[in-house]
């Protein structure tokens, strides 16, 4: 449900940066740990962009998987389910990627 507020932030943030240009394409990075659902963002985008320079723009979402490094054995760890669990059995894992929630780039006319 917070995706509506997130999408409003995307539209407001991009509008601020592009001046009066029309936006053709917006590329977002959304990490697996960001607690944001890409499908909900897509659903909200058309509604939130209506009447702005972003109206009609295509939306591309790059989903960034969660990766970490085990604090005990320093191995790389990939997320399976809800828990970052290392092969060595350790759950104390530094998160390397997956928290992304940003506008990567836009294309304007």
């Amino acid at each position: 449900m917070h995706e509506l507020a997130i999408t409003e932030s995307v539209v407001a943030g991009v509008s601020e940066r592009v001046g009066r240009s029309r936006v053709l394409r917006v590329v977002l990075e959304i990490g697996a740990l960001s607690a944001v659902m890409p499908d909900s963002i897509r659903f909200c985008f058309d509604v939130c962009s209506k009447g702005t320079q972003l109206e009609g723009a295509s939306l591309e979402i790059l989903e960034i998987p969660c990766r970490g490094r085990c604090r005990a054995c320093r191995r790389d760890v990939e997320m399976r389910g809800a828990v970052l669990l290392c092969e060595c059995g350790e759950t104390d894992v530094d998160i390397v990627s997956g928290r992304e929630l940003r506008v990567l780039r836009v294309e304007v006319a």
């Binding site: 997130i6 932030s9 995307v10 943030g13 991009v14 940066r17 592009v18 977002l28 929630l101 940003r102 506008v103 990567l104 780039r105 836009v106 294309e107 304007v108």
Partner: peptide, 8 residues
């Protein structure tokens, strides 16, 4: 193309 890399 505008590279924004802007935290939402």
């Amino acid at each position: 193309t505008l590279l924004l890399e802007q935290d939402i």
